[in-house]
Design a protein around this nucleic acid. Sequence first.
DNA 1: TTGTAAGCGTTATCAT
DNA 2: ATGATAACGCTTACAA
Lengths: 339, 339
Amino acid sequence: MKVTTLKDIAIELGISVATVSKALKDYPDVNKATKEKIIQTARKLNYSPNQLAVNLRTKQTKTIGVIIPTTVHHFFSKVIDGIIEEAEKKGYLVIILQSSEKLMLEKLQVNLLIDKRVDGILMSLSNKTNEFVHLKKVLSRNIPLVLFDKIEPSIQCSKVRIDDEKAAYDAVSYLISKGYKKISHFRGDLNPKISNDRFKGYKKALEDHRIDYDPSLVYICNNNTDFEDGYNNAKKLIQENPEVDAIFTITDLVAIGVIKYFNENKIKIPEDVAVFGFSNWFMSSVVSPSLTTVHQPAHQMGVVATEILLEEIEHNKDNKPSIHKEVILPTELIFRESS
Amino acid sequence: MKVTTLKDIAIELGISVATVSKALKDYPDVNKATKEKIIQTARKLNYSPNQLAVNLRTKQTKTIGVIIPTTVHHFFSKVIDGIIEEAEKKGYLVIILQSSEKLMLEKLQVNLLIDKRVDGILMSLSNKTNEFVHLKKVLSRNIPLVLFDKIEPSIQCSKVRIDDEKAAYDAVSYLISKGYKKISHFRGDLNPKISNDRFKGYKKALEDHRIDYDPSLVYICNNNTDFEDGYNNAKKLIQENPEVDAIFTITDLVAIGVIKYFNENKIKIPEDVAVFGFSNWFMSSVVSPSLTTVHQPAHQMGVVATEILLEEIEHNKDNKPSIHKEVILPTELIFRESS
DNA sequence: TTGTAAGCGTTATCAT
DNA sequence: ATGATAACGCTTACAA
């Protein structure tokens, strides 16, 4: 089936393309009768505008790009959900790219999106991202950029995140208030800000409550902060520091690995060792014992980041100078059985 | 920063746009020296082609569209991962849309993708989809379409799926071989083919092993086949059919809801009641007791569906008649503690 | 009220 | 080897 264009309609009716275009876009200066005719034949020929042509002409694509480390992750899949939901609501399409935690890919993907002329870009940086020319390139092209979750403070753009340091501080302070003293931390990679912030919060809570910080109680999750990290680190921890009485983990998945190991080895939670997760992933309420954790508003983060991005896009169109926002979404401690 | 176009380069060098275009596309008929100059200035001016213009001209967007019921789902997030991975490998971008199990949205989104001139579409149908004009519209426009997972047999296009009936049959047969006799089934919605196929497999296994089919042992998961469905149906089941000795569930999430309820109520798994899941979601190996289930190759399904789609797209370009494939990916029973 | 024509940034044919 | 030109399908200022 041939695809109908404005020209086809124009020829069919023996009028000009311009008039057809105007009629279909509801311009006031077109005769009611002709307009009616045009709409009729448009419908008859099953016309729908070629967005490529529209985009080229109007210089906007009604499309935003998203670059995240991975889609297979409870947190990111909820963020994506929020992004798509909000974007669709405002008539925007969403192109999703995965950096797979590789800086090189991330740079490449930024270029892809720029060439594709997306109206704006949403990013959560890879754990390996330690230089930012690609982000600056986006900004220098005047393409709105919003960073969320894994952000870089030095980049001049809007950001949506939680206060990781405070959340970690609160979590560890709670453990301390419950009487735990030998508190281990299973932290994330050394590079990402969120990982460092949570670590800082952990350390600060100890200090503020006069507990000596013991570096040997800190374990790094370098297997992609996965279930296995929790499982394996728990094993090591118990061997190396049998006197430990609590663990604060960088994320729920790691905590669930810990729980699995402890359950298998008859280490009682929280009697022998308490466990505190991070994210409030759905599964954390389901495992046994259920996991005490920090609620992180993933879906909302997607929605808010997209709202801000679309605002900036509209702003940009009107050539107004853009004002960047930094939104810090509230977190909440969720108390369950594990501590 | 102004975005560089071919024209800018041409002016800078005092030559024609045509030559610049050819040089950058490595046409043979351009002088080596001028070509060198052109490439230099292109780099200097940070040129990258405006894909919108390229697309309009070449009539292909190197973009594919994906419509799925939801992204927040272990199965679909793995499929997406496979799709993006394969698409990126071949230089295609991926636009993702969520139907949220609404037929109306699904139809709308098909139109969006058509207008956007995507080169092909990948779909897993919503549970509510019971008419297919929108799919036929895609085909009549000669846009390659591949259905996966939730498919519709009557549509003439390529399909990638598993053999749900056989997988369910094998699962239930296994339960029977282990001596279970009162086997309940927590099934999915009444409309989707996969839900009906799994139900058919369940029923056929009973019949083939001379166990009477008892409709009162079949429960429907109508809360989006969620954790709650498992939990609530388990409660009802135990009240209404205390003599039940096994449950085959439509999906792992439901099974995990069952496990939660049983654990809370000291019903022993598998001694009192065995549980069999479906999907082999990562969590199924982690819960206690670990879940016996059917392995469903989610990531591979995404990869294969995309491979087929891109093949058809290339085929289409050469105006060859397209041959549709139906690929059935193998499943596998994964035996763990719950049965 | 309708139509003409330029232009968005490319590509590709056909002259030169 | 290079360039002029039309075309892709649409929008929009301007002319009729």
